[in-house]
Amino acid sequence: MTPLIDPFARAITYLRVSVTDRCDFRCVYCMSENMTFLPKAELLSLEELDRMCSAFIGLGVQKLRITGGEPLVRKGIITFFNAMSRHLDSGALQELTLTTNGSQLERFADDLHAAGVRRVNVSLDTLDQDKFAQITRWGRLPQVLRGIDAAQAAGLRVKINAVALKGFNDCELFTLTEWCASRDIDLTWIEVMPMGDIGNENRLDQYWALSDLRTRLAERYTVTDLAERSGGPARYVRLEETGQKIGFITPLTHNFCESCNRVRLTCTGQLYMCLGQEDMADLRPALRNHPDDDAPLVQAIHAAIAAKPKGHDFDYSRQRADGQMPRHMSHTGG
């Protein structure tokens, strides 16, 4: 099949798939506390998710990241991971990965490894139990830490994703860094993004520029820039004293769009070609109206990629959240 090339000659080789909008946490920068979730009939079934992802893999997608909500709260989700493993076995898919809040890893780490998952990203913004309960609203830190232990014991490489929040975890910069170093875990910091109505939270008050975070790291460590690029938003450094890799995802202070190789599929079948734009393509009709013919789905995917924009317009520099997206991060899957 013809591979997916967007109008700016970028090959689309990375698909992020939200398998559910539900989550067992209510992180303050991601969801409102009393979320209204989608009716289950609107969600793609696991079989439909298999067919959709398989179509993308047939068009050259080599990396598949499963997200949510919290993907591991989706009933039967391990059967989906087991189904995707056939694409790893064939060599069509190079990597099957997962982003999780860690709450269910203690239950599923061994099953994920058996399905071919080798890396997981765990969202963890603080090591303080009280602050963890505050920012997740419903979460329990010990459960997440046990999940990380289980993932490492199962042979999964863990990376921590921490959202940088001024006045919340800026005081834990070195605590988190040293905790990750002691466990041979890489750490990526993410600037808070203007996504969705989250009630009383003010993202301008929360915003902690990663340039400041990096400057603080350099006061204690020797920080070496790395040339490593994944086609995505992260830029990496190595801390020479610990040997660990630190990533910075800075959509607000640095635009990474020129090398973007990814698209995002929601749990209801909408394809977002850019996290920072509202344009999307609804692939569900092509999937459901032609249950025995993938040609209309492939055609719809190609048409969507042909509409992928050059970039986004997130900007906090004028003291307002330009480019703010009304949808929640849990809907698009990060």
Rank of each mutant, 00 (worst) to 15 (best):
T2R: 09
D6H: 08
D6C: 06
R16K: 11
D21C: 04
D21W: 05
D24S: 10
R26A: 11
R26G: 07
C27P: 07
M35E: 12
M35I: 13
F37D: 11
L43Q: 15
S45Q: 06
E47A: 14
L49G: 03
L49S: 05
S54A: 13
A55N: 05
G58F: 00
Q62P: 13
G68E: 11
I77Q: 03
S85K: 11
T99C: 15
T99Q: 14
N101E: 10
N101A: 12
L105Q: 09
L105G: 09
E106D: 11
E106N: 12
F108C: 15
H113P: 08
R119Y: 06
S123Y: 02
L124M: 07
R140C: 12
L141H: 05
P142N: 12
Q143Y: 01
A151P: 01
R157E: 01
A162Y: 03
V163I: 07
L165H: 00
L165M: 02
Y207I: 02
T215I: 10
T222D: 12
T222C: 15
E240A: 08
Q244C: 07
K245F: 02
I246W: 01
P251H: 14
L252Y: 00
C257P: 03
R264K: 07
L265R: 00
T266A: 05
L275N: 03
D294K: 08
A295V: 12
P296W: 08
A304D: 11
P309F: 11
Y316D: 05
D322S: 06
M325N: 03
H331N: 06
